[in-house]
Design a protein around this nucleic acid. Structure first.
Lengths: 165, 165
DNA sequence: AGCAATTTAGTTGTGCACAATTAAATTGCG
DNA sequence: CGCAATTTAATTGTGCACAACTAAATTGCT
């Protein structure tokens, strides 16, 4: 009575959605972790984890930034970034210093070593692209869909937050 | 010389890939976390985290399974599942017992309470679908693309593992 | 039977994600 | 100015992901 798979050969029963459901978000989750596995291998040489690599990308592109801005680029808060940045600092890739203009904010910048690491990272995107086995156009479209999805979900999370029905 | 953004207004320089790169996998990562936020809200009522919900989906669909099989369905290993299942057991949703036939394996099954929880989960997929703002067809196609991507990445990870150039 | 290789869970340690809280500096308003 | 509200990082605590390792049972081979 409890865990019978419930054949239901003709009508799409309500329970079927629990299977479909798994596939929608689980596919995303699995793809994200599969990427993680490939990045882990490629980034090992550089001594970076994938989230650390994302931070380095932001710094390589924008130069010195306050923690807040780094978090906005990556959709991460200080609870994640503070320890991560501390590890990058310990590794000698990043400098952190309180802003003189606003003592609340901490400016994050690259050390020479951190800036130099960019050269060794240049081959990563091509190798990742090769691992996906997809052409640039497909990747672009997939990215667009995912960004739309993220925007819709963030929107929904906002209206869900209080007591909105 | 170090952190200059490097304008390069006409030629697609090698460094541009470091931006594109961010967008490929970061979009995926961001979408996955955005889903996590929506699920977190919806599953709070049920007292489940998203990974715990995935485990419950597997058990609702397949009934009693060894830990190994649960892991195969979800692409997770015992390092993740053992503590997670222990929490579900503490919550009274799941039973764990050593198989008599093979003392190495642990069978995971639903308690009555765990089986009953399924009823309250039936509304989740619909509410998630609503939050995505996408129709079923788009979701299906996206899922197919992601699954292909995951397969390609897993494939690549395998040939990358030893010393394959 | 005897023993090495394999399989299955669990444990340990590192790092990330995120909610909740804290502390300090800044801003805004009367 | 004086003080409440806001902003910014950091900290704390929970849970997940995964690599590396351990322990125990099973399988396979001779």
């Amino acid at each position: 009575m409890t865990a019978t798979p419930a054949p239901s050969p003709e009508a799409p029963a309500a329970g079927d959605f629990l299977r479909l459901d798994e596939q929608i978000c689980f596919s995303l989750n699995a793809a994200s972790r599969a990427f993680g596995g490939v990045y882990r291998v490629l980034l090992k040489d550089l001594g970076l984890t994938y989230p650390q690599y994302l931070v380095m990308l932001v710094l390589w592109e924008h130069g010195e930034l306050p923690v807040k801005k780094v978090g906005e680029h990556l959709r991460l808060d200080s609870g994640t970034l503070s320890p991560l940045l501390k590890r990058l600092e310990t590794a000698g890739l990043v400098r952190r210093e309180r802003s003189a203009r606003d003592e609340r904010s901490v400016q994050v910048g690259l050390t020479e070593e951190g800036a130099a690491l960019r050269e060794r990272a240049l081959s990563v995107p091509r190798r990742i692209a090769a691992a996906t086995g997809a052409d640039l156009e497909e990747i672009r479209e997939l990215r667009a869909r995912l960004d739309r999805l993220t925007a819709a979900l963030d929107e929904a999370a906002l209206s869900e937050a209080p007591g909105c029905t």
